[in-house]
Design a protein around this nucleic acid. Structure first.
Lengths: 217, 217
DNA sequence: CGCAGAATTGATACATCTCAAGCTGGGTGG
DNA sequence: CCACCCAGCTTGAGATGTATCAATTCTGCG
């Protein structure tokens, strides 16, 4: 495991900066240390779909592929821990523990992608918003646990436009649905970004998820 | 590699039969030998989204998880090659070649899932249909290559309803769009299932994909 | 032959998109 | 220090694509 340490290096990016362009040669892989990045696909006519949200500890890049398949964009200031691809692949071949770990992470990402397919294909705009807030809320809850009463507070790491790209909606629809959830007391807002969820179970219900907490029992 | 052979066994399913129920305990993993199966998620109110289409060679199950996350349903008669989970996991730990191979397959599935997120989130009904036909056509083309003139003939392995579940549409919309593509000569039909694509490039254009052949340059 | 599941087609309703006009808040330069 | 500016956001009114509800029509099969 510490063999990884010997070939690693760090890279910093500013909010808004593009880390990798789709189609570009990619000679490294890495993982997010701090900050948030997005993985997006773009069609010729400009339609965009976010296909991944990269939070700290998430992996970027694909061993065995020379060319990036997606755009990676830093949404906040970002620090990444990188490995040149060739040495990393060599290590993968030699160290089962590393490839097992990577397999596990990839399976998690696959589950997340599949859960998102349900959101994109079958949920209403309101449910989509509630689903996104649930996911961000849950991941941030791991860090910022709050008073036991299932009240949750977190910072939205995405603009309305980025949320729209994630949800397959327009930014206007995102804005309207957030306003509606706020009007009805499902969430509260301070400024545009700080979200308070007074009743997380209620939010999950709006997302159309089973009451038991969503994915993977 | 042949160690796998020693712990494998075969299972047969009839068209329409459910292989695994979401939420059930799952004590095996496996791969499709022949036939076609689908991976679907269902919401409490019955809305369904297909999250994977399993063709021969595709892998089913997740090492390290006890409970199935999705329904697996045989769409045609199906033969699967199975391994009891415990021995398979042991082998994974001991045999880097196996876990590398599995990692590669999982990464491919992740790419497919992400490509599908773009379809679900941003494409129109007509583009969705064309995208599905392209994918099925391309995978079957690997087997049934036809006269060089980019004409392609294949059998649709899915009902209109299953297509709707894959595409995040209703079956009526699927039917209408297929009729429209047929009316305009983009495809031809013999019966409900046999599809002829006179100009594959044309179909790709309808799918909104880059002319070079879609995914992953 | 006739039935049942699958598919097509039609009319209407509705959710979301599109286009367009303001608003808001934080940073900047005069 | 204030006014302005601009990206991000909100809100409105109308257009449109897809869903919904409801008949038929196919097609394969017992």
């Amino acid at each position: 495991m510490e063999q990884l340490d010997q070939i690693k290096y760090y890279r910093n990016f500013q909010a808004g900066q593009t880390v990798v362009w789709s189609g570009d040669r990619m000679d490294f892989v890495g993982s997010v240390v701090s900050g948030i990045a997005t993985l997006t696909q773009t069609m010729e006519d400009g339609r965009r779909q976010m296909v991944g949200l990269l939070l700290p500890s998430d992996f970027v890049g694909r061993p065995g592929r020379a060319v990036a398949a997606y755009d990676v964009v830093a949404t906040s200031d970002l620090v990444m821990c990188c490995f040149r691809k060739k040495p990393f692949e060599d290590l993968l071949g030699r160290t089962p523990a590393v490839s097992q770990r990577l397999l596990e992470m990839t399976l998690d990402e696959l589950d997340a992608a599949r859960e998102w397919m349900l959101v994109l294909g079958r949920k209403t705009a309101r449910e989509k918003i509630a689903s996104l807030l649930s996911i961000i809320g849950r991941r941030s809850a791991a860090l910022n646990m709050v008073d036991g009463n299932s009240t949750l507070v977190f910072e939205l790491p995405l603009t309305r436009e980025a949320m729209a790209d994630y949800l397959g909606l327009t930014l206007e629809t995102v804005s309207r649905q957030i306003s509606a959830l706020k009007r009805e007391g499902v969430i509260q807002l301070e400024g545009k970004r700080r979200v308070t969820v007074p009743d997380f179970e209620g939010l999950l219900a709006e997302a159309g998820d089973d009451s038991d907490g969503g994915m993977l029992v």
